[in-house]
Design a protein around this nucleic acid. Structure first.
Lengths: 337, 337
DNA sequence: CCTCGATGTTGAAACGTTTTAACGCCTGAG
DNA sequence: CTCAGGCGTTAAAACGTTTCAACATCGAGG
């Protein structure tokens, strides 16, 4: 490792004091143009890179925020992250992405690390309700895609109950009366909310609660969707649902694959609704009906809320967006031959 | 903001010196169990969080590495990132993900930031050749999915020339003699390599170079694939290729969508080969033939190489993996009615 | 000629840790 | 009783910045 050139080396090389170098770095306008040039030249020549730790230690602020994402492999979250990043960069902040991968332990570790790093703020889509209540340790936290139940912090969410209701109402209107909902684990708030919305749709339509079969999955990933498909087909034909509402598009895509593999047709044998409307939903084997959420706006808004967090008269806000149903081929009206 | 409790506050509260608190934090075994308990209790009680900046400033090391990814929305890279993270976490390092989003400026900013942060090491899939040559500033850098041409750093790559050759050879064997390659911009090394492989396949089969029409795109994203599809269909039927090799799966998925929309059939009117074999390739409208790369292993290996970087007798290594063709429906043999 | 304000520069004191050498205490051996 | 050695603890010196009050220098206004 190089002897690591510091601000004093630069100062000496340029024939000024270290305070002046610091000024060139942080308040260029306050130093005379000639000196500034000389210092910049010295910086260039010596290959000086400011030591952020020292800067932060003294200055107290870090110019970095972080987004702890639930599943970096889910395009929904990468889209949210893009919104976050755009907003952050407009505000002159850098963004660190951390992937909890739905693992509470990992999430805790990252939060601890971020607190230690004294980031300016943390955006998080928490793994479960417990972690959503994480002790605030001086760093502002904004919940993303999850509503803060207590008023202790800001949150940006989408009305998942409404989303579930939209999806299942659509299926009911298409004539389905035996419907499966696929999703899990139930420790995830979104899954619970979407199920609640589904139940509400049944009630609204005067259908009994057992018109909905809930198949719980271990995660919200493609492979689990395939597994659920097999379980579904395994059911006796008389009780087998004619439509499925998946808690996200990854599950729906897996389900779709599984149906094709088992020789069943979508939507004829099984209508499918997904959730999130990720880009791949439209490109699927059967273009997927899905519930669209304003992904980038979700992230962008969350970042903006975070920025208001240390304003003097800040009070926590809870923004809630409306989802929207996008109808495609996977729920085309059932043919009655 | 809270008055921020420091190590000395803890020390005072526990009736010991700050050095002892530091020992509890870093070398718990060296301090007497009773004292340790007392200190831990004080930490808990005061809600002390170690200031990482100060730690790092004094200790010199950061326990963090970073992966600057080319496109966080591309599942290929999130899979690579997962491999990186697994390896990092096994080594007790945290991983920060930075998304350059194929933007050279963004990439430079992040690299600067990471240097300032004095991260232990940087993994990067660079935007273009210029950025791949980025001045090393004391922080070890490993190239991911790109070969380091000079011997100045380690790299982990996949043989893209071979990949392109596999894809196009497969198309030729299926009887295609007018083939399109879709990808870009050409500033991306992978695109150039895959095209070179495609040309080699032509040569091997004794086909003229103009059997391959290269359609350059502005990026490697789904929307560009759709655009390319329209351009393709716009060609006079006599010159229109009967098969397309896409530089990645996102383009291929876009192309697929575009074909369906324009009423053409895959593979009958156009056979399609993608690249990367992302999870969604198998779930596409027409399951996609694709060139598979060992994604997670790529990331894992890169992280491991990075870790060897500050061993005393380190010499830069260039690992190169072999890709593999996965044949699916999108290149099923052309029917000749 | 003196004073004043503006403009540029600087010396030195933080910031909150880790680290090192030294310290006091206790125990067991001589 | 003395002394060597081990053990646990500590005072104080870093680490590389930023910041602030103070200090030159200079031109203009009185």
């Amino acid at each position: 490792m190089k002897p690591s050139v510091g601000i004093r080396d630069v100062a000496q090389h340029a024939g000024v004091s270290n305070a002046t170098v610091s000024n060139v770095l942080n308040r260029p306008d306050v130093v005379a143009p000639a000196t500034r040039q000389r210092v910049l030249a010295a910086i260039e020549e010596l290959g000086f890179v400011r030591n952020e730790s020292a800067r932060q230690l003294r200055a107290g602020s870090s110019r970095v925020i972080a987004y702890v994402v639930l599943d970096a492999a889910n395009p929904f979250f990468t889209d949210v992250a893009r919104g976050v990043e755009d907003a952050a960069r407009e505000a002159g902040l850098a963004l660190f992405l951390c992937n909890s991968a739905s693992d509470g332990g990992r999430e805790r570790e990252y939060l601890e690390l971020l607190h230690e790093q004294r980031v300016e703020g943390i955006l998080i889509t928490p793994v479960d309700a417990a972690s959503a209540r994480i002790a605030e340790r001086g760093t502002p936290v904004v919940l993303v895609d999850r509503e803060a139940t207590d008023g202790t912090r800001c949150s940006v969410a989408v009305d998942d109950v409404l989303g579930g209701e939209l999806a299942v109402t659509h299926l009911i209107e298409n004539g389905h009366t035996r419907i499966a909902m696929i999703g899990g684990p139930l420790s995830i708030q979104q899954v619970r909310d979407r199920r609640e919305g589904a139940m509400r749709a049944l009630t609204n339509a005067g259908l009994p609660a057992d018109a909905l079969t809930f198949l719980e999955t271990r995660s919200l990933q493609v492979a689990e969707g395939r597994g659920a498909g097999e379980r579904l087909v395994g059911l006796p034909a008389s009780r087998r649902p004619t439509a499925a509402f998946c808690a996200n598009d990854l599950l729906a895509l897996g389900l779709l694959q599984s149906m094709t593999q088992q020789g069943l047709r979508v939507p004829d044998d099984l209508a499918v609704v997904g959730y999130d409307d990720i880009e791949f939903a439209a490109a699927a084997a059967v273009p997927l009906t899905s519930v669209r959420q304003p992904r980038e706006q979700l992230g962008r808004t969350a970042a903006q809320l975070l920025l208001t967090e240390n304003e003097p008269d800040h009070e926590h806000r809870h923004v809630k967006f409306q989802p929207e149903l996008v109808v495609r081929a996977s729920t085309a009206i059932k043919r009655r031959p």
